[in-house]
Design a protein around this nucleic acid. Structure first.
Lengths: 348, 348
DNA sequence: CTGAAAGCGCTTACAG
DNA sequence: CTGAAAGCGCTTACAG
């Protein structure tokens, strides 16, 4: 009626996935040897390795990660943290591209990706202890605005993290991967200049984001390099949304009716600008050339198709993963800047 | 020079997050009591509970989930599984809506969401053992096409899962949450009929997806109910893409020039149909009324804005999470069908 | 190259 | 209501 402890255990095990104990018994070795094979198989005789691998296959053994984590003191997983209003990011096509890239890069390494959002202060408070308690080995941080408070927690908890884009308002060396925004902007403005435009306006992004800052700086630098005096009537600042691009363009048109080109810091805003220009009865690119930034999915299907700067999203996500793993393995922080590419279509 | 074991342990601990052991020592109780408080605090005296909670706050204790998982035999996490070509899903706006909804619902329950993709056969082979080994407690499954092979593995491994949409080609009772596609389609066709249209065409979705099947069935049923004979020249089948909507519409126009309305099984395809109709020199809705399905983000900004059927995405994700947790807690499978809503804009 | 043993941080019957 | 103890499934010095 009542089983002995070993009987009970054996019975329970029959319903459960096999453990290292079962593999060891099957292969006729100790559990230590099985573990060594699992770790890569150094210091194991070929015969033992073979027997263990055969047993693993036969039993369909899969390591229990919780048990492993407990002893190695590593979670074995990584967080993809969206520290931004969710709506903003989830509706941003660039975000899905990044998410897909990181998922793929991590999947190849068999590292689970835990998706975490922290758009509000309340969410941040809830998630910080989880992260700081090292329930993940590191975090891929996506947050565009200045002064993310979570960074200090990660630093305090000694938790590796890599930012997407330069984290503003932070001191000390932090790991981040970013596109070369400034150089990309310069490239576009140069292209506009070379096509003969002389009155080039810009719609910048929010000035508390690296993209907003750097792309505007690139615009100014290029004009300065070409001896063109700065004219603040030619500068408007949007919030990366399509609607803001449209209204900025109306302002620009009103303030500087003679402008013949505009460099817009995002494709979405550029699409809005296109609408404004056409509603004003002007033609693109004949009257006004429009250059965007991102090469987002909408770029080829705007009317006319948008000339823009391609962000290296795939490389960014791959590099973020690589940098994060390096840090988890003890390396120090590093900054990675990736080049962008001018994509010429019809709008400029 | 050489520490004793306890000294070594104490020193190591000082750099590590506090454990239940530290909390117990601090509160002057046993570790068992601390654990009981963590579990909800039944069978614990108020005094002990207070002491433990104070110690937890003071030490900033956070439970080690790996250790907990090891003994409870539960992962404590859930997978969001995309068993579909990644491109297709990541570019689908409905997908991000679902992902956001599930993330939010799970976050409230403090359950980590692990994002897993399995678009190719190779990926499926890699991920199946991980999932089947119960590295997650359950899976939220997103896959639209017929006969997903992973389902059999989940069944065999006794792993709870809930599908988004009716899983085709499966027998036996499976849990799924879906919008009432058929009723939604009927609703739209009725709306078209009531506005006086008599030659109503349809662009259906792929016939190996529940949405493709059910929406077409709803279309047919409604016409039959109104005594309108079935005319197969009025039926075309697309693949949910914008491009397929456009080309289907050209075919329809060629085969049945007298059609005065079209019910399209997705907003993206409807947008394509709009283009085709306008290129053919016809007006929407004057000449042809167009009804979509999804109420996706593009619907309000098509020209003209699209009359469509709203899918209850937020409710779907919430219900999927709820059903999954119920199953994890031992309940049997259930089917949940959620109503849709007609959203009238200008296209019909 | 290999086994025996300790220990990772929890939970949970089992006694009391 | 509470403590002592066993055990979850691994890894890793430590001896040999």
């Amino acid at each position: 009626m009542t089983d002995t402890a070993p009987q009970r255990r054996a019975r329970a095990r029959s319903k459960r996935p096999p453990t290292i104990h079962d593999v060891a018994a099957h292969a006729g070795v100790s559990r230590g040897t099985v573990s060594r094979v699992l770790q890569g198989g150094d210091n194991v005789s070929p015969a033992a390795r073979e027997a263990v691998n055969a047993a693993i296959r036969k039993l369909g053994y899969v390591v229990n990660r919780a048990a492993r984590s407990l002893v190695t003191q590593r979670a074995g997983s990584v967080a993809f943290l969206l520290s931004e209003t969710q709506d903003r990011f989830f509706s941003d096509p660039n975000f899905t591209t990044l998410l897909r890239g990181c998922t793929a890069a991590l999947a190849e390494l068999d590292i689970p990706l835990i998706l975490v959002t922290a758009g509000s202060e309340a969410e941040r408070r809830r998630i910080t202890p989880y992260l700081s308690a090292h329930h993940v080995d590191g975090v891929l941080l996506f947050s565009s605005h200045r002064g993310n408070p979570m960074i200090d927690h990660f630093l305090a908890a000694d938790l590796p993290f890599v930012c997407c884009g330069k984290p503003l308002g932070q001191r000390g060396a932090l790991s981040y991967v970013a596109a070369d925004d400034r150089e990309g902007a310069k490239n576009m403005v140069r292209h506009l200049l070379e096509s003969g435009r002389t009155r080039i306006a810009t719609i910048a992004g929010p000035q508390d984001t690296p993209g907003g800052l750097e792309r505007l700086a690139g615009y100014r630098e290029t004009l300065a390099e070409h001896g063109i005096a700065h004219d603040k009537r030619l500068v408007a600042t949007g919030d990366y949304s399509r609607a803001s691009g449209e209204s900025c363009m109306y302002h620009l048109l009103a303030r500087a009716p003679d402008l013949d080109a505009v460099f817009v810091a995002s494709d979405l805003m550029a699409d809005g600008a296109l609408t404004a220009i056409q509603r004003a009865g002007l033609r693109v690119p004949e009257d006004i050339a429009v250059g965007g930034f991102d090469d987002s999915p909408v770029a080829p299907s705007t009317r006319p198709p948008l000339t823009t700067i391609q962000q290296p999203w795939d490389r960014i996500s791959k590099m973020m993963v690589r940098q994060l793993l390096a840090q988890i393995n003890g390396e120090g922080p590093a900054t990675v800047i990736l080049p962008t590419k001018l994509v010429v279509r019809e709008s400029a």
